[in-house]
């Protein structure tokens, strides 16, 4: 009984600084002071906001898929190395995560700027005469976000891959499967769930990005978090709260849809075998 009491400080902290604040966001977005959908109507009918909504979804989806395409082979490579070497290979992937996101964003500004390192080098090499515009573009946002998110996907894929019994692959090979076929029929289905989880985590975290689009993107690359922050600084709390609800709702919807689809897929595969 006394053990249960130790939960109270945690519940109090989460209650006061997470549950009640999120509740307040819903209240601010939906009531003014009586129930209203005015903020949501404004959001849905002004083209600018809907465009930012779709581009937030698009950026998060592309970042998640690029991380999957790059990170899955990396995790596979590490897991196929001798166990003694794996921690070091993982360590190299994880160290860049310890650098502040603001510091990394600064670094990309220095690299991609008009007088930045890439432009200076290209001009020095004589490959271009005029600097190329790289900073304040969607491409800069993608590069920085993938650099930030990739380690998270690799870790998630790697930890699910280490649980795969490697002798299954050997068995498939002994039974005459080609390496490619052994990978496709044995390794891929067993590692799919970890890969989907990792991709979803990257997607969810990307949806809330704020610093990178603000500092590296152009005017048209703002994401929902930037709009929320802009509305807060104009003290439009109700509208900021409504956009927050849209952000949270869209994220959860994608989460549920992908989870549902992947459960069906895994189930389907099990039946096929």
């Amino acid at each position: 009984m006394t053990k249960r009491l130790t939960l109270l400080p945690g519940i109090a902290l989460i209650g006061m600084l997470f549950l009640i604040p999120v509740g307040i966001v819903f209240q601010q977005g939906l009531f003014d002071p009586v129930f209203t959908t005015e903020h949501f109507v404004r959001f849905a009918t002004r083209g600018a906001y809907m465009r930012i909504f779709w581009s937030t979804l698009q950026i998060s989806t592309v970042v998640a898929l690029v991380c999957l395409l790059v990170g899955y082979p990396i995790a596979y490579f590490i897991v196929r190395q001798p166990p003694a070497r794996r921690p070091f290979l993982m360590f190299l992937v994880l160290v860049p995560m310890w650098m502040s996101i603001l510091a990394r964003t600064y670094s990309w500004m220095v690299v991609l700027g008009k007088e930045g390192i890439i432009n200076q080098s290209l001009i020095w090499l004589g490959l271009i005469d005029e600097p190329i515009k790289m900073l304040f573009t969607t491409g800069a946002v993608y590069v920085a976000m993938v650099q930030i998110m990739l380690p998270i996907l690799i870790v998630t894929c790697f930890s699910s891959m280490t649980e795969i019994d490697q002798s299954l692959l050997r068995a498939a090979r002994i039974m005459g499967a080609s390496p490619r076929k052994a990978f496709r029929e044995v390794f891929l289905p067993l590692s799919a769930e970890g890969a989907i989880t990792g991709t979803l985590i990257v997607f969810i975290l990307s949806m809330g990005f704020f610093i990178v689009p603000a500092l590296l993107g152009g005017r048209r690359d703002a994401m929902l978090a930037n709009v929320i922050s802009g509305q807060v600084s104009q003290t439009n709390w109700g509208f900021a709260a409504a956009i927050s609800i849209v952000l949270l709702g869209a994220t959860l919807l994608v989460l549920v849809l992908v989870r549902g689809a992947s459960a069906k897929l895994v189930h389907h595969q099990e039946e096929a075998h």
């Binding site: 604040p21 966001v25 949806m207 949270l248």
Partner: peptide, 15 residues
């Protein structure tokens, strides 16, 4: 850890 910090920030700020 999953809910975007901006949403927590807005709620905590108003509270």
């Amino acid at each position: 850890a999953i809910v975007p910090n901006i949403i927590v920030a807005l709620g905590v700020f108003i509270l």
